[in-house]
Amino acid sequence: MSLWTLVKVCSIFYLVFPQKTACLWWAVGNPLVMDPNAICRKSRKLATKQQEICDKELEIVEHASSGAQLALKECKYQFQNRSWNCDTTTRPKAFGRTLQFDTRETAFVYAGTSAGVMFAITQACNTGELLQCSCDSSLKDVAVDGEWVWGGCSDNVVFGYRKSKDFMDARRKKRRKDFREMIRQHNNEAGRLAVRNYLRKECRCHGLSGSCTLKTCWRKMPFFRNIGDRLKKRFDGAIKVLGSNDGKTLVKEGLTIKDPEKEDLIYSEQSPNFCVVNKKVGSLGTRGRVCDPKSRGTGGCDLLCCGRKYKTRKVEVKENCQCRFLWCCKVVCKTCRYMKTVHRCE
Results as ranks from 00 to 15, higher is better:
Lys330Trp: 14
Arg91Tyr: 05
Ser83Met: 11
Asp259Thr: 15
Cys321Arg: 03
Leu265Phe: 02
Ala47Tyr: 07
Met221Tyr: 07
Asn85Phe: 05
Leu214Gln: 11
Tyr310Met: 04
Asp236Phe: 13
Cys135Ser: 01
Ile12His: 12
Lys252Pro: 11
Leu46Arg: 07
Ile239Lys: 10
Val251Asp: 13
Ser283Gly: 07
Glu74Ile: 06
Asp292His: 01
Leu131Val: 07
Cys40Tyr: 14
Gly29Lys: 01
Glu316Ala: 06
Lys73Tyr: 11
Ser134Met: 02
Lys314Gln: 11
Thr298Met: 10
Phe17Tyr: 15
Arg176Pro: 03
Lys340Glu: 06
Asn187Tyr: 13
Leu208Cys: 03
Leu72Phe: 07
Tyr310Cys: 03
Ile39His: 11
Tyr77Arg: 11
Cys133Asp: 00
Ala238Lys: 13
Glu181Pro: 02
Ala38Met: 06
Phe101Glu: 08
Gly67Ala: 04
Thr113Val: 08
Cys40Lys: 12
Arg172Glu: 14
Ser209Tyr: 10
Met34Trp: 15
Asp178Ile: 01
Glu52Phe: 14
Val315Ser: 02
Gly285His: 10
Glu147Leu: 05
Ile239Phe: 04
Gly112Lys: 03
Phe235Thr: 01
Ile257Cys: 09
Phe274Cys: 02
Asp236Met: 13
Arg162Trp: 00
Ala190Asp: 14
Phe13Glu: 14
Lys262His: 10
Leu72His: 06
Asp35Val: 04
Lys252Leu: 05
Pro293Glu: 01
Cys328Ile: 14
Thr122Met: 00
Arg104Ile: 01
Arg308Ala: 06
Asp169Leu: 07
Leu131Ala: 04
Ser2Asp: 03
Lys314Phe: 10
Asp87Gln: 06
Tyr161Met: 04
Asn85Pro: 12
Asp169Glu: 15
Lys330Thr: 15
Lys309His: 04
Asp55Glu: 12
Leu304Trp: 06
Cys135Glu: 00
Arg41Asn: 12
Cys23Ile: 10
Val109Gln: 04
Leu242Val: 14
Glu189Lys: 15
Asn81Tyr: 15
Gly288Leu: 03
Met221Asp: 04
Val9Arg: 06
Lys76His: 12
